[in-house]
């Protein structure tokens, strides 16, 4: 390759980077910075005591210190027998509104006589006085390893999503939950348990699931059952109905493997969105309520190629949002 060719490719790379960054803006960041500055000013004015009480209740801090000291003295006792109930094995501060560490997720381990290694995931919201209240909790049975929580925000949207997941000890299966937080209200968008030989990742607002499936996982009525099981890929994209009546998507570009399922997750029960798409590349699999989420629409990536999926309140409306889809070979 000569220099001229390389310059041409670098110019294309620049265009791709511009397209990539077009979907981000720093407007939300500006508000966050302003809040953080205000908070820090409060901390300076209030001294160290205010600093501590502003974040964790003193009793909680003392309890955490005691537990930490006990763990240091006693060593990793949780591996010797049933875990100490009430001891979080993973704690992560997350921001689900404009405040940086507005929420916290704890995973607690608890055992029962029949089954070891259950996990309880608890989502807390920090109150104005630094106290925490539980706003969501979920049990993951036979789960060993808690995974870090990912927060998904929809660009120009009004909600945040927390994605909570765990794996079994031998990683044979995973559990996961997607929880929407909006106007102090929590809605569970997605709950999946015992996903066999599964992997899950959150990337740029999209959830990507891989699982090992029985042969008939993707079959529609009347399809011929294939002889072997294999991998199935599924992409979940949260969709939100904004107050201006338009739909917002957590991402605007997605590359799907052929045969994969694309699921748009919504919580809109009364007004299902109008959707236009290229029927050669994509096929609708189901438009359901009470499935994997309160309301979801599944598409199958039928054929390699590109497609644009428009989502709006009515067909042909100018207020539609668009998802660019590329289907590639398996």
């Amino acid at each position: 390759m000569n220099d001229k060719d390389l310059d041409k490719k670098l110019s294309t790379a620049r265009s791709q980077s511009e397209r990539f960054f077009d979907k981000f803006d720093f407007d939300r960041g500006i508000r966050m910075v302003q809040r953080r500055i205000e908070e820090n000013r409060g901390v300076r004015n209030g001294g160290i005591k205010r600093y501590i009480t502003g974040r964790v209740p003193l009793a909680g801090a003392a309890a955490a210190l005691t537990i930490a000291l006990l763990l240091l003295v006693l060593g990793p006792v949780r591996h010797l027998g049933p875990a100490n109930p009430g001891t979080p094995i993973l704690q992560q501060a997350i921001g689900m509104d404009e405040e940086r560490d507005s929420h916290m997720v704890n995973y607690f381990r608890f055992d029962n006589p029949n089954s070891d290694n259950n996990l309880l995931a608890v989502l807390w919201r920090k109150g104005s006085k630094g106290n925490y209240e539980v706003i969501y909790s979920s049990i993951m049975e036979n789960a060993y390893t808690p995974n870090p929580v990912a927060v998904i925000t929809i660009p120009s949207g009004e909600s945040s999503f927390a994605f909570v997941s765990s794996s079994s000890k031998d990683e044979n299966y995973i559990h996961y939950r997607l929880v929407k937080y909006s106007n102090s209200t929590v809605t569970e968008y997605l709950e999946e348990n015992f996903v066999p030989s599964g992997k899950i990742q959150v990337i740029n607002g999209m959830i990507f699931e891989e699982r090992t499936i029985p042969a008939d996982y993707n079959l529609r009525a009347g399809d011929v059952k294939p002889p072997n099981s294999g991998k199935a890929y599924r992409y979940f994209i949260p969709v939100e109905l904004r107050s201006d009546g338009s739909f917002a998507l957590a991402t605007n570009r997605v590359r799907l493997k052929k045969g994969a399922i694309l699921t748009l997750l919504t919580d809109i029960l009364d007004e299902p969105p109008a959707i236009e798409y290229d029927t050669e590349v994509l096929g609708i699999k189901s438009n359901r309520t009470g499935g994997v989420s309160s309301s979801s629409i599944d598409f199958e990536a039928k054929k390699e190629g590109t497609a644009s999926l428009k989502i709006g309140k009515k067909t042909g409306t100018d207020n539609a949002n668009e998802l660019f889809i590329e289907v590639v070979g398996p």
Binding site: K9, R14, Q16, S17, P148, V202, I203, N204, T251
Partner: peptide
Amino acid sequence: SVVEKQRKQVDTNRLLEQVEGGELF
């Protein structure tokens, strides 16, 4: 192992970020 697992996840995140951005980028 949780930390190690997350490191792996970040690697995978990168993999998919690449897809999002275009091949040459």
